[in-house]
């Protein structure tokens, strides 16, 4: 069952199309990363999902409800943390939690205390006197304490220094063991996301490029290096094709194990073919470079 579904979701700002015909599914129980460069449309998508922004066309359902009709009942089951969110910084951490608590019938005071301790937050300090990371952790705490089935994080690592970022991720990993959450996290910090997610959706220029499990993604992408093949022609579907003398390399997005390797050996007879696994970051960069090159070609055309 998908906890989030979008169908042809589109949002325009004047002539600019921030999100174009997005069809996204996030299965229940998954931790899904929405990846993409700045301006790809990640935050716009999330804001449409949470009814912070209306779509120009298409529709989205969150927990089975049209996102435009999300009411208190649905929002009581959704946790949302965004880097850009303006919180009431004049409150102390304690006051903020005290304010949020009555709105959630399922608020877990024990979990609140545990997270307060885990995040090492000073309860009596005003949020305006906290570091950015602390404020983000406060926001995360206030969005977790009622054990929402769905947690949406929009650029939660932006602006955090590496140490805080690491603490934040570790905190997320620790709390992931405390409940059964579905998490949608948008970011362009791939290393952090890689530690958290079991599913990746990549969005580029408002378009969804793919949406699959991390395992499947890592499994189908390979960096291929062929030594000894001269005048080789680019492999269909390959990304970042380069040839320098006898060394030819590309990124294969459809690696299927032995059958793919056999096909390469047949294509480059006598050459040495080496296919190495890629990290999520490498995959993402390969895709991004490829998209950028494609966009430049289109512009030139």
């Amino acid at each position: 069952m998908n906890i989030i579904e979008t169908h042809n979701l589109t949002r325009r700002f004047g002539r600019t199309e921030a999100v174009h015909g997005l069809d996204l599914q996030v299965p229940s129980g998954s931790v899904c990363a929405l990846l993409g460069p700045n301006g790809a449309g990640k935050s716009t998508t999330i804001r449409m999902l949470l009814n912070l922004l209306h779509s120009t066309s298409g529709r989205a359902t969150v927990m089975g409800t049209d996102s435009r009709k999300l009411g208190p009942a649905e929002l009581a089951n959704i946790g949302y943390v965004a880097e850009s969110q303006s919180l009431p910084l004049w409150m102390t951490v304690r006051e903020y939690l005290d304010f949020c608590r009555p709105f959630y019938p399922r608020w877990d005071a024990t979990l609140e205390a545990k997270l307060l301790d885990l995040f090492e937050l000073p309860p009596e300090r005003k949020m305006k006197h906290l570091s950015r990371g602390m404020v983000m952790k406060t926001a995360l705490l206030s969005s977790l304490a009622y054990r929402p089935p769905l947690l949406v994080l929009d650029e939660p690592f932006a602006g955090l220094d590496p140490l805080v970022r690491d603490e934040f991720v570790r905190g997320m990993l620790e709390i992931s063991e405390l409940g059964d959450w579905t998490v949608l996290v948008s970011s362009h910090d791939i290393e952090e996301v890689e530690r958290l997610c079991d599913r990746v959706a990549v969005i580029y220029a408002g378009r969804l490029k793919f949406n699959e499990t991390t395992d499947a993604l890592l499994g189908r992408f390979r960096r291929v290096e062929v030594t000894g093949a001269t005048n080789a022609t680019p492999v269909s579907g390959g990304l970042e094709w380069t040839q320098a003398g006898a060394l030819t390399s590309w990124v294969e997005p459809a690696y299927a194990g032995e059958s793919t390797e056999r096909a390469w050996r047949e294509r480059f007879p006598g050459a040495s073919v080496n296919a190495s696994p890629m990290t999520l970051r490498e995959i993402y960069l390969a895709l991004a470079h490829s998209e950028r090159a494609g966009a430049k070609k289109e512009e030139a055309a």
Partner: peptide, 9 residues
């Protein structure tokens, strides 16, 4: 779109 209360019940 940054207002926090909108995403609360």
């Amino acid at each position: 779109q940054q207002t926090w209360w909108v995403t609360r019940p």
